[in-house]
Amino acid sequence: MIEIKNIHKSFGKVEVLKGIDIRMEKGKIYAFLGPNGSGKTTLIKSILGLVQPDKGDILVGGENIRNNWHYKNQIGYMPQIARFPENLTMTELFRMTKDIRKSVSNEEEYIRYFHLEDSRKKALKNLSGGMKQKVNAIQALMFNPDILIFDEPSAGLDPVSHIKLKDLILQEKSRGKTILLTTHILSEVEELADEVIFLLEGKIYFQGSVPELLYSQDETRLDRAIARITQKKTLTKYKNAGM
């Protein structure tokens, strides 16, 4: 369970997050939507402690994460771009994270699931983008954490692997995990999300289920609804600027 209380964050003069409050429960999938630069990744990185908010608190499982790192034991993170130490192989990478986390892991199951058996001994830099993405997913899932964070997980995955990953996400949800997801693929949102959190210019513009979002914008298709929100916001911005 994650509680985010009034988070503010600026990079230099640019205010990226302007007071975000969210409560995320067990057994639900939360999809973070919003145009580029709306603060999705910054928010996720704040939960992971990679970015340190200027103001506000984040509680993970009731624990404040400020100056705390033990809570990361409960989190599995799949970053946007697959990034690894260049010279390691997949086996070595998993051995390293296992060595660091010291919890029970079941990476073999996932290696078979994604058919990566033959890539064990290859240097990670020689794997294709999609394969790296799968390694990334395994890294997030292998310790069976209570909270899973996927930052644009579908990027670079072929359609079959994409479906496989979605199945995994749904399976984890049924096991009572809290799942956070950012994506630009709206079919993914419709398929997976219990709750949509739409960020716009560092604030929560909308929070609710997909049907609620459609209803609020008086649209039948999610892409139209999203486009409408974004356009409306741009219009009011110009109006306020007197243009």
Partner: peptide
């Protein structure tokens, strides 16, 4: 600069910064 990836990977793990 080049180990930024490695660093980001480690930062998401339960280790002291």
């Amino acid at each position: 600069y080049n180990s930024r990836e490695f660093t980001e990977l480690l930062l998401a793990q339960p280790i002291k910064r």
